[in-house]
């Protein structure tokens, strides 16, 4: 049976003004479900390099959750906010 995992986008004093908790999401298995929760006052859109819609079809409104992303293979997935330049991003380790 799959588990559900959350990545929270929270305000942060350093650039770019927000960060991800956890920054590295571990313990995820293929078939688990992942959502991002945007707790900031700005929209965000976690996307893969070169593919904004890799994780979700639409941006996440402020104070809202994303739709569900389900990893389909083992590996490390990295993401950055497609709406904000300079976001160091985060990663998901699927094992």
């Amino acid at each position: 049976m799959a588990f559900t995992w959350s990545i929270t986008i929270v305000k942060h004093s350093g650039a770019p003004g927000f960060t991800y908790v956890p920054k590295v999401l571990k313990d995820v298995a293929v078939g688990d479900e992942i959502i991002w929760t945007n707790e900031t006052d700005q929209p965000h859109w976690p996307g893969a390099p070169g593919n904004t819609k890799y994780f979700m079809a639409n941006q996440i409104a402020p104070h809202s959750p994303s739709t569900t992303f389900i990893p389909s293979a083992v590996g490390t997935l990295t993401y950055k906010d497609s709406l904000t330049s300079g976001d160091p991003g985060g990663s998901i380790v699927v094992s």
Binding site: E33, A48, K53, F55, A57, T67, T68, P71
Partner: peptide
């Protein structure tokens, strides 16, 4: 919040199927 008139739960998997 789903963002579509259909409003069925949406998911993305492997970067392709939505």
């Amino acid at each position: 919040a789903a963002g579509t008139m259909e409003a069925c739960d949406q998911y993305t998997s492997g970067g392709s199927s939505q």
